[in-house]
C-alpha cells in the first residue's frame, strides 16, 4: 500500500528488518511513524511538510529521542537528521539500491548498542601520559568496536563511541564506575544507550 504523501514528504528515521514490529511512536510534528516495507526491510517514516529541513536544535533532539525509543524496541540503522524523500516511489528505489548494504549493516549492529564516553581533565590537573590509552584499552576489551570522536576541546582526554553487545551493557557500566573511582581527578561523561550512529556508514540521499 502506498503511503499518502499529498500533504508533505517522507521523513525517514531509520531502517529495520522487523516487519511485525508494532511501533506506536509519534514522529516529528507529532505525525505517526509508519513502516514502508521493501522486501524484508522497512523504512520508518512520517509525513513532513518540507523537503529540505533546516537543522534546528529542538527537532534534532526530538529526532535523536525518537530513534532512542525505536532502538529500545528493535535493531535500527539510524538516519541522520533531515533525511526527507519526495515520495514513496523514490524511497523504494533507494532502498532497492542499498538493500544489500542495509542488510549487512543490520547484521553487524544486531543486538548491539552504542555507548559514548568522554573523559575530561580537571582544569588544574594534567593527566599523566598514557592514562587515555589505559582507559581506552579497558573499555575496548568490552566492546566489539570503537571509534574516536571529535577532539573539540583541549580538556578532552578521550572522546570515543563504543559498539557494545546488549548483554555486556551492565559490565561496561560497571567498568566505567570503577574507572571513575580509580581516576578521581578526571570527569567521565557516559551516555547511551544510543542507536549505533557512529558505526553505520550508509549514506542515502533524499529527493
Amino acid at each position: 500500500m502506498k503511503m499518502e504523501t499529498e500533504n508533505g514528504y517522507l521523513y525517514v528515521y531509520g531502517v529495520i528488518n522487523n516487519k511485525n514490529l508494532k511501533l506506536g511512536i509519534k514522529g516529528l510534528k507529532d505525525k505517526p511513524i509508519e513502516k514502508i516495507d521493501f522486501r524484508d526491510i522497512s523504512a520508518l517514516t512520517s509525513i513532513y511538510p518540507i523537503l529540505h529541513p533546516a537543522l534546528k536544535e529542538d527537532e534534532a533532539m526530538q529526532h535523536a529521542d525518537i530513534l532512542k525509543k525505536i532502538a529500545k524496541k528493535t535493531t535500527v540503522i539510524p538516519m541522520s537528521f533531515g533525511m526527507v524523500f519526495n515520495d514513496q516511489e523514490i524511497l523504494e528505489m533507494i532502498l532497492s539500491k542499498s538493500c544489500m548494504a542495509i542488510k549487512q549493516t543490520l547484521a553487524l549492529i544486531d543486538g548491539k548498542i552504542e555507548l559514548g564516553v568522554k573523559v575530561v581533565q580537571n582544569q588544574f590537573y594534567d593527566a599523566p601520559n598514557g592514562i587515555a590509552l589505559e582507559i581506552l584499552g579497558q573499555l575496548d576489551k568490552l566492546s566489539v568496536k570503537s571509534v574516536k570522536g571529535d577532539n573539540f576541546s583541549s580538556r578532552l582526554l578521550l572522546n570515543h563511541s563504543f559498539l557494545v553487545e546488549k548483554n555486556k551493557f551492565s559490565k561496561f557500566s560497571k567498568e566505567i564506575a570503577e574507572l571513575e573511582e580509580k581516576h578521581k581527578n578526571l570527569k567521565f561523561i557516559y551516555t547511551g544507550p544510543w542507536p549505533p550512529y557512529s558505526f553505520v556508514n550508509i549514506n542515502i540521499k533524499g529527493s
Binding site: 568522554k118 575530561v120 571529535d150 573539540f152 576541546s153 580538556r155 578532552l156 570527569k187 561523561i189
Partner: peptide, 9 residues
C-alpha cells in the same frame, strides 16, 4: 561544544 561540556561536568 566545549561550553556544553563544561556545563555538563
Amino acid at each position: 561544544k566545549e561550553n556544553r561540556l563544561l556545563f555538563e561536568i
